[in-house]
């Protein structure tokens, strides 16, 4: 019994270390002064410093991290909230009246399985025509498409879990559909909305391909911005600064994920099993 417990901790430690190694290595690199990185690539930091973060967080002509972060935030908020707004009414119709069971639901859920690149090119052409290229709204809209499948699934599941009698009671209380939806169904879906939002936000923030293809300057999200940083420095990458950029870029979803990990596990199962 005791031995097993020790072994389990050991397995956990190894798994956590190996899987998180790149994050750890990046964090360590970000905390090293510029000279130290290539001289001492080990995980031991000789003279820890926040210098790299100071450089990253200062606006310069090479790098304005705030612009990237703002682009990511705006696009991710659109990409996380819009699916909830779009899916809620139709999810109710699906759960209670079977609307869209044959076509709409499978169609949306299957979007999850399609390679995103398929949408990227026609969208590029469409955005070019509509003037949505390199805009935060344009990026947010397509991120909303990416998040639709899971949002639809989670919200349908949540509505199905509400006892039908509650809605019937509201009807007996004289409420028509809009009021039932607003006062009874919507408040009871709040936990599902929160989960959907968290998933959606993380996914949207982390999205790269659309950012790469549909933005060039004004609306570049931080995932793409960080990769620019690697490429543009050519031979002499400033490893410490690059690492600090990545840490900053990875931090919001990381924090959200770590704080909300309980929510993520359970609903992933719900989302996957029905889909």
């Amino acid at each position: 019994m005791k031995l097993h417990s020790v072994l389990r901790w050991a397995v956990f430690a190894v798994a956590a270390f190996v899987m998180n190694f790149p994050i750890l290595a990046t964090l360590v690199t970000a905390l090293k002064p510029p000279g130290e990185v290539t001289r001492n690539p080990s995980l031991w930091i000789e003279s820890p410093t926040l210098e790299n973060f100071a450089i990253v967080l200062t606006v310069s002509d090479r790098l304005n991290i705030y612009a990237y972060l703002f682009n990511s935030l705006t696009a991710a908020l659109i990409g996380a909230i819009l699916p909830i707004l779009l899916c809620f009414p139709v999810a109710w119709a699906l759960a209670r009246r079977g609307t869209g069971r044959a076509v709409l639901f499978p169609l949306v859920v299957n979007l999850r399985a399609l390679p995103l690149i398929i949408f990227a090119i026609p969208l590029y052409i469409m955005y070019a025509t509509l003037g949505l290229l390199d805009t935060r709204v344009g990026l947010g809209l397509i991120l909303a498409v990416v998040n639709l499948p899971l949002a639809f699934l989670l919200i349908v599941n949540a509505i199905q879990a509400i006892p039908l009698e509650l809605e019937e009671a509201a009807r007996m209380d004289g409420a028509r559909l809009p009021r039932i939806l607003r006062r009874v169904v919507l408040p009871l879906c709040r936990p599902a909305f929160l989960t959907t939002f968290i998933f959606g936000f993380i996914t949207a923030w982390n999205e790269f391909l659309f950012g790469l293809m549909l933005t060039t300057q004004k609306a570049v999200p931080v995932t793409v911005g960080a990769s620019f940083f690697f490429a543009t420095s050519g031979g002499g990458v400033q490893w410490g600064v690059a690492a600090a950029v990545m840490i900053v870029a990875a931090l919001p979803p990381l924090v959200l994920g770590v704080v909300m990990y309980r929510r993520i596990g359970g609903s992933m199962l719900g989302g996957a099993v029905k889909g």
Binding site: P22, I202, N206, T223, A249, A250, L254, G257, V258, Y261
Partner: peptide, 17 residues
């Protein structure tokens, strides 16, 4: 929470890391 950290980091960032 510790074990799921890699999957909430952007794959693009992970590639760079």
């Amino acid at each position: 929470a510790v074990l799921i950290m890699p999957m909430v980091v952007a794959p693009a960032m992970m590639g760079l890391m």
